[in-house]
């Protein structure tokens, strides 16, 4: 069983000047989701959230994997052009993804209160200085898709700190990380929060 990668032929070079083009890290995340297809479907998630959906390839893939009308997915991005790209990608692949333009998932926080069944995040993970991290986030530009601040953990740390308030009892969190983010430290940290975690 292998699910096709979502169609993204509608996105142009011009789009990719402003929106992160699916790359190796995106496909690694798709592979990780697909590897968990059986437990993911069995868990019957009703609320999925993707933070920073960019081109929309991951949210679209997750909805295809779970099957039509099986779950709600809310995708967020601070970049309005990324929100539009995600919407186009979902439409082009005949799935429904609800978009919210916002920072991380702030407007969702009070209400999702331990209700997120699947949370997906391919963060800006490239180590940069703090100024570049803050500037790219504030301008909601393409750089915000990769510039990650100290050890590349600027946004990842924020999201990890929120996890206990976000995830449902059976909730799953998929995170992309690189060596410089010290994946083993992330695992240790999640375990201290009482979350079972592994590096794939």
């Amino acid at each position: 069983m292998s699910l096709p990668t979502p169609y993204i032929g509608h996105l142009t070079e011009e789009d990719y000047e402003h929106v992160y083009e699916p790359a190796e890290d995106s496909f690694i995340l798709l592979d990780a989701l697909e590897a968990d297809a059986i437990p993911l479907r069995a868990a019957r998630p009703s609320l999925c959230v993707e933070i920073g959906s960019g081109s929309g390839v991951v949210s679209t893939f997750l909805m295809q994997l779970l099957g039509p009308n099986q779950s709600l997915i809310i995708a967020t991005d601070i970049n309005p052009l990324a929100c539009q790209a995600t919407q186009k990608t979902s439409h082009a692949n005949n799935v429904t993804v609800d978009l919210v333009q916002c920072n991380l998932l702030k407007p969702l926080l009070p209400r999702v209160d331990r209700g997120v069944d699947v949370l997906v995040f391919n963060p800006p993970y490239v180590p940069t200085d703090l100024a570049e991290f803050e500037q790219t986030q504030a301008s909601a530009s393409l750089g915000g898709a990769w510039a990650g601040g100290s050890e590349g953990m600027g946004t990842t740390t924020t999201v990890i700190e929120l996890l206990s308030d976000l995830l449902s009892p059976q909730g799953r969190f998929y995170l992309v990380a690189v060596e410089q983010n010290r994946p083993q430290d992330i695992v240790a940290r999640l375990q201290r929060q009482g979350l079972r975690s592994e590096v794939k």
Binding site: Q84, V100, N103, K106, A138
Partner: peptide
Amino acid sequence: SNGIPNMLLAEHEVGR
């Protein structure tokens, strides 16, 4: 706009 709610706040408006 176009079905997408803009819930991004300016820095001075941001709380949590």
